[in-house]
Amino acid sequence: MIQLLANPQRFMDFSKWAAPIFGILAVALLGTGFTLAFAVPEGVEGSGGSGDAIRFLFFHPQLATMSMAIYAAMAASAFFGFVFRHLLADAGARAAAPLGAGFTFLALATGSLWGVKTWGTWWIWDAKLTAELVLFLLYLGYMALLAAIDDETKATRAANILAMVGVINLPIIYFSVYWWNSIHQGSSMGGNHLGPDYVAPFILNMLGFAALFCALWIVRVRAEVWRRKAGALAVQAAGKS
């Protein structure tokens, strides 16, 4: 599959169909998921939020999971781009970063809204929250590096190296913030005991956000390919005149 799609032309033929299919899938899954999410009974104390606050359960954990999954996807792309010098893999890493930053930002924002509803505070220095914040900073650093170097090929390769350093560091950062938090205070988050009513929208939205990312990612990679093509054509035209 990866071998097959490594050819840019074949990728473009495939992605012409794949992007809208993932898009439709995302709309269908998220539509069903959110409909069910608003239909579930209101939460009781200790189940992740009383009253309507329980509904955060159907998009906040999903966004947070995606924010980490996207970094993994970006680092994998970066690795293939760095080792095999493949243009599509480079484009994949570049295209994933702003999406990942967006998902991370949304996870942080919905998290603090949920926090206000259930804990009565916008932010606490809990291990999970801190790790998510550091992840957001890693995305910003990647994008800053990409933007700061003039030569696009060099910028991409430098950013690829940074993504690989980051993915080695992420588990260490996760471990360290958990260790740090445990010497200060115990985790304030209780376990969720979910009934079957809650599981369906939870999983549907998880798949929905994943499909949404895939659709947006493919669209962005296609845009990168076109941008490169446009640049090459512009150089050609300049050479003729």
Partner: peptide, 8 residues
Amino acid sequence: IVLPLFAP
């Protein structure tokens, strides 16, 4: 680039 890596 570097400060997030200084966290641990």
